[in-house]
């Protein structure tokens, strides 16, 4: 099996490009949805310990809204679309003119709308990845949770924590035009993801090119 700690700069660059293409398409979809410019940051490919998984979104206890999809097929993994609660409310307001509910948490209707937004965005991330690699990817029905970032993201670690103590994440942050919507696309590949991807793209499995 391919081992993430043997990746050289070349493999990391390829994975960054995966994030670039996937999140790029998703950001375009988001921009069309809310008719505003979206700035996407350069994707970060990181090999981290389990504890660091929530650092990028403000720590394990940070309250976040997350859409989760399990990806099956030739490149299995877990996909998260994560925004903070304020961004989620702003998204809803801009997208469908929903007045903020006065409740502290989101209403059922708001949750349903967010679910659909997450579905569209994660779907465009994955379908562009599938087009680019010609690999077969099947996303699950998306699920939504509003809870602590650590509790949510650790769900993406279950499969791969069986294989080691480190995890590779492809994290792409984005910022809405008026800086009132910011969030992350996280792709956490399973250990089996890399070999198929690298073979499909003609990339050596480890070391430098």
């Amino acid at each position: 099996m391919v081992s993430i700690d043997k990746f050289g700069d070349f493999q990391i660059d390829v994975l960054r490009e995966v994030g670039n293409i996937g999140a790029g398409h998703a950001a375009t979809a988001l921009s069309k949805l809310i008719q505003k410019e979206i700035d996407m940051k350069v994707p970060q490919v990181k090999i981290i310990t389990f504890d660091e998984i929530a650092d990028a979104v403000g720590g394990a206890e940070e309250l976040v809204v997350a859409i989760f999809l399990r990806v099956e097929g030739e490149c299995p993994g877990n996909m998260f679309f994560i925004v903070d609660l304020g961004s989620a409310r702003n998204l809803l307001k801009q997208l469908i003119g929903m007045e903020e509910s006065q409740e502290e948490m989101l209403s059922e209707l708001e949750i349903s709308a967010l679910h659909e937004i997450g579905n569209i965005l994660a779907g465009s991330y994955l379908s562009s990845l599938s087009d680019f690699t010609k690999l077969n990817l099947q996303p699950s029905v998306p699920a939504l949770a509003i809870d602590m970032a650590g509790a949510i993201l650790s769900y993406g670690l279950i499969e791969l924590c069986r294989a080691g103590d480190y995890v590779l994440t492809i994290d792409t942050a984005f910022l809405g035009g008026e800086q009132d919507v910011n969030g992350h696309f996280f792709l956490i590949p399973d250990p089996d993801f890399f070999e198929k991807l690298f073979v499909a793209l003609g990339v050596p499995l480890n070391g430098d090119y």
Partner: peptide, 10 residues
């Protein structure tokens, strides 16, 4: 004290 944060399925 002992503390752990963000228990989900763990």
């Amino acid at each position: 004290r002992l503390r752990t944060t963000g228990l989900g399925s763990c």
